[in-house]
Design a protein around this nucleic acid. Structure first.
Lengths: 212, 212
DNA sequence: CGGCATCCGTGACGATACTG
DNA sequence: CAGTATCGTCACGGATGCCG
């Protein structure tokens, strides 16, 4: 438990970086945007992080009030880590980073790891630009299925598997299309028009996307 | 020249952090938002950074296309570092970090360094929330004077000294008021109403702020 | 004097092994 | 499963030196 290193600058950006500027911290937040996660799952979806660094960051984030550690009720009484409200407020930071980093994605490198839910932030942006307000959207990729809560003010931003309940829209696309959306090369409307994204559902969002 | 360490994840946020996630990098960007700066000036306004790390980061940023190194025309033919367009696009990232970090500011700690222009990002936010569109604003603090280009699409976001040309508004306030604005405790409109900020100028922005 | 490069001590990081 | 322990390596911060 080191006396955490600080920039010691009376500047709000520097203060933010004091808390989330360490290596891996913002990527752990990215993972926790999917809701409560176990240590092992975090470790699996953060390839490259060492076990001690992950444990250390989680403790730091707990102390900083960004995350909490909670024991699930039995059976399966494992510990899960969950974002606090303050932690969830980092969503705009991750959105800004994700938007800025989109042009850097390029082609997938052989050394790159991929997870389906890493496309959640880019797709949130695509959906927002397509005019989606508050909506529950189901996404089906080859790598897996997940759902997005566009415009949700609290709770998980996305989650694994199909939507819990009636989705406002359901998107099916191939890997290349999803990557092109993530890189910002095409808009969601364009991809739908080109038949690269299949939209189903009865909600207003689904209708709007289909008629784009 | 190390083969820069990467997260090796096909995720736009991770790619962004590959480029700007290293210690000091985003604070260097914050400094360069003030326009071209010399190495020595950067070093003076980034207390705590070691000389080799600053030089190394500047090289990395040059290689990444975030900044350029340019020789000023004589006399005073020094080198200056300047953000590229791509580098300036990091403004939303810094704005998001600054907004998130505002509640963490608290009271000034004895170990905290301060520079007048570190209040530029918080004040930009205050001005945006007060309804300012594109405007040139002059700010006078006890620690120094600087000017802001609210809503500017290119060029420096702020600069030292009085505004070059006719300012749309001029704000004078004391240190405590500026810090309260930065912490997000009060809105600019409230501060003006309370007489803690003096607004002068003839432009529509000045009128709007005075009548708030 | 501005603009770094070099050296050095300390701490953070990454990989692996191990434990309750 | 959920971490802790150990260890080699590298990055960081501070000081100093060099060179135009």
């Amino acid at each position: 438990m080191s006396p955490r290193r600080s920039y010691d600058q009376y500047c709000s950006a520097a203060r933010a970086l004091d808390l989330v500027g360490d290596r891996w911290t913002l990527l752990i937040v990215r993972e926790l945007l999917a809701g409560p996660r176990r240590y092992t799952d975090l470790h699996a979806d953060l390839p490259g992080v060492s076990t001690d660094v992950l444990a250390s960051r989680l403790k730091d984030m707990e102390q900083a009030g960004l995350a909490t550690r909670r024991r699930l009720s039995p059976p399966g009484a494992a510990f899960v880590y969950e974002l606090t409200g303050r932690g969830r407020e980092l969503l705009p930071v991750l959105q800004a980073l994700s938007a800025w980093g989109a042009p850097e994605l390029g082609e997938r490198r052989p050394t790159d790891a991929v997870r389906a839910h890493w496309f959640a932030l880019p797709l949130l942006r695509s959906l927002r630009e397509a005019g989606a307000g508050e909506a529950l959207v189901e996404v089906r990729l080859e790598e897996g299925e997940f759902h997005l809560r566009v415009g949700a003010q609290q709770g998980p931003v996305h989650g694994e598997g199909p939507a819990p309940g009636e989705a406002d829209a359901r998107l099916v696309m191939d890997a290349g299309t999803c990557e092109a959306l993530a890189r910002g090369e095409v808009s969601l409307a364009d991809a739908v028009r080109a038949g690269r994204v299949t939209v189903t559902g009865e909600g207003t969002l689904a209708k709007a996307l289909q008629e784009a």
